[in-house]
Computed example of a mutant assay.
Amino acid sequence: MSTFLYARVSTAEQTLEHQRTQAEQSGFRFDYIIADHGVSGVSVLMKDRPEGKRLFDMLRSGDTLVVRWVDRLGRNYADVTDTIREFIRRGVVIKTIINGMTFDGTTTDPIQMAVRDALIAFMAATAQAQAEATKEAQKAAIATIKARDDGTYKGRKPSFNRNQMALVMDMDGKGNNVSEIAKATGLSRQTVYRIKDDAAGAEKALATWGL
């Protein structure tokens, strides 16, 4: 029985080391670390990613798969739910670092199975919804910049980067409070509030500075 960490690094500001460190700080140790770099979780299915395909080939009954959250498996509802259910059918235990969730096939009680599957569906839907919201915020920010910004004044440089903003939105969507988010991201509470309250404005600031 082996423990795997799967990481998906989809932007330049995300790093494998960050996801690994976060996992180790939560008490996990790994036999294998597998990561896909520069791969969209929306348009590229898990089985179609180079390392995702390798993960499918390697996982066996009794193994444990650790991910930062389900959005690392993907941001496509159907793909994420299909992937988790396939792994469960194989006898793999899936654990998330954020919120400490565990999904497995040990229960045979139909009510507990229904609750488990509903939670998987909810988390997968949240991952896709967050991706779509971020995309819309980016579009709105770019449109605003094109319409109003002549390039002579950029305003104050953001005190956060895109990876930190994504983590703020992720954790806020999962119900974490501002203090928890600030601690996880290394940002001040005021900055966390500013990102939460005006995601489009935060995205515009990043886009304006080319961050």
Score class of each variant (00 low, 15 high):
166 A>H: 03
187 L>H: 03
58 M>F: 15
87 F>A: 04
1 M>V: 14
70 V>H: 10
195 I>D: 00
92 V>A: 00
192 V>G: 06
167 L>F: 03
134 T>H: 11
7 A>G: 06
78 A>Y: 01
77 Y>K: 14
78 A>T: 05
29 R>H: 09
172 D>A: 12
51 E>D: 15
50 P>S: 12
126 T>P: 07
81 T>V: 08
19 Q>T: 08
202 A>I: 15
126 T>G: 07
117 D>Q: 08
102 T>W: 00
90 R>S: 05
7 A>C: 12
151 G>S: 08
46 M>K: 07
135 K>H: 05
49 R>S: 05
120 I>R: 08
35 A>W: 08
120 I>N: 11
104 D>Y: 00
150 D>R: 03
197 D>T: 04
116 R>M: 13
3 T>G: 09
72 R>A: 06
57 D>Y: 02
12 A>P: 11
110 P>D: 13
20 R>Q: 14
41 G>K: 15
110 P>C: 13
66 V>L: 02
169 M>K: 12
55 L>A: 10
172 D>P: 03
135 K>P: 02
124 A>W: 02
5 L>T: 00
109 D>A: 05
181 I>F: 13
148 R>W: 10
68 R>P: 01
108 T>N: 11
111 I>M: 00
68 R>F: 05
198 D>G: 04
177 N>S: 03
31 D>P: 12
123 M>Y: 13
2 S>C: 04
197 D>V: 02
104 D>K: 00
93 V>N: 03
140 A>M: 06
66 V>Q: 01
35 A>Y: 08
126 T>H: 08
190 Q>S: 14
90 R>P: 04
166 A>G: 06
8 R>C: 02
131 A>C: 03
118 A>T: 12
8 R>T: 01
125 A>L: 07
31 D>T: 11
207 A>L: 08
188 S>M: 04
164 Q>P: 06
61 S>I: 15
131 A>L: 05
99 N>Y: 05
168 V>K: 03
119 L>A: 08
119 L>P: 10
113 M>L: 15
165 M>T: 09
80 V>E: 13
28 F>Q: 06
90 R>Y: 01
148 R>K: 09
47 K>F: 13
85 R>I: 03
9 V>T: 07
84 I>K: 13
114 A>D: 14
81 T>N: 07
142 I>Q: 15
122 F>Y: 09
202 A>D: 12
146 K>Y: 10
124 A>S: 15
71 D>H: 00
70 V>N: 08
23 A>G: 01
179 S>G: 11
192 V>L: 08
210 G>P: 05
190 Q>M: 10
57 D>P: 00
187 L>Y: 09
117 D>T: 11
12 A>I: 05
202 A>C: 13
128 Q>T: 07
95 K>M: 01
142 I>V: 15
72 R>I: 02
131 A>R: 05
19 Q>H: 08
162 R>W: 06
25 Q>D: 12
191 T>V: 14
27 G>L: 01
196 K>W: 11
86 E>Y: 04
181 I>T: 07
106 T>A: 02
39 V>Y: 13
94 I>F: 00
111 I>C: 00
42 V>W: 15
127 A>E: 04
34 I>Y: 07
167 L>R: 05
62 G>R: 12
13 E>N: 05
182 A>E: 12
